[in-house]
Amino acid sequence: MSTPANTPPAPRSLDASGLPSHAFGHRAPLWWGVLLMVAIEATTMALLLVSYLYLRGNEDAWRPLRLSWRILELAVVQMALLVASVGPTMASVRAARAGRLRATRSWLLVATVLGALMLALRCLEIRWLPFRWDTDARGSVFWMTFGLHTAHMVTGVLENGMILALLYAGRVEEKHFGDVEAGALLWYFCVLEWVPALALLYFDPLLWPT
């Protein structure tokens, strides 16, 4: 019942004035907060993908929801834009950690423009999709998953937009560099979650006999 020996003894009196006034990564509370929000959204996305598989598995004769090549190409271009945005995001985080304001905001701007471009293409895709959410359950689960990712991307672009506004016009403080890094976590997630969703919603139907 004694205190475990492998933990350090309590510091007696401790002068905190010498400690740094902010930190990056897992040292920072905000980073954990965003990571947990991402965990919540990732669970949501996973549940929708599992729902898709559940509906597919329970259907006696699953009729895959095939999309035209035009839409598949559009979806691949969107994915490419997302992947392309990862590099600039990482560069902005690196610059933020080094405290280089101009590099931070320039790279973040590039990433955000790529994301906004992807959203513009998504608007086009919404017009092209040949079925609606109320067509049948396949349409429902497709639109729900599609809608969730779009909502994540809109959030990511708006958040980046706000950070950019701050970095360009506002009164920048050290802690805002931490915001850049935390915002990047959400951005990476938006890219990553769409990989299995794209495979399942767009390409899995091609594997089924018509």
Binding site: A95, A98, R100, L101, S106, V172, E173, E174
Partner: peptide
């Protein structure tokens, strides 16, 4: 605001 100590806006980025 607490001013930045690493780099002020307007200086050249690396």
């Amino acid at each position: 605001p607490t001013p930045l100590h690493a780099e002020q806006p307007g200086t050249k980025a690396a």
